[in-house]
Amino acid sequence: MKARVHVTLKSGVLDPQGRAIQHTLSSLGFAGVDDVRQGKYLELDLAETDRAAAEKSVRDMCEKLLANTVIENYSIDLVE
């Protein structure tokens, strides 16, 4: 089973990189991009075959390492 994990900055946390990307997009002529938020994408190959157990375990990984929940949210997507 694969786990796809997205880690994103919480709303309200300033994202200077996102702002710089937005600025560059606009200077390239891409109009109408109101905001850019940069995050991380992680793909985990899991030995676990039980969906509920996998979800629990990846959630634990996010809480303990993959995300810093002071500033980041995470979402988990499991695919067979």
Binding site: L14, P16, N68, I71
Partner: peptide
């Protein structure tokens, strides 16, 4: 937490 410097 220590984040990236505001001016990058």
């Amino acid at each position: 937490v220590l984040m990236m410097n505001a001016d990058l």
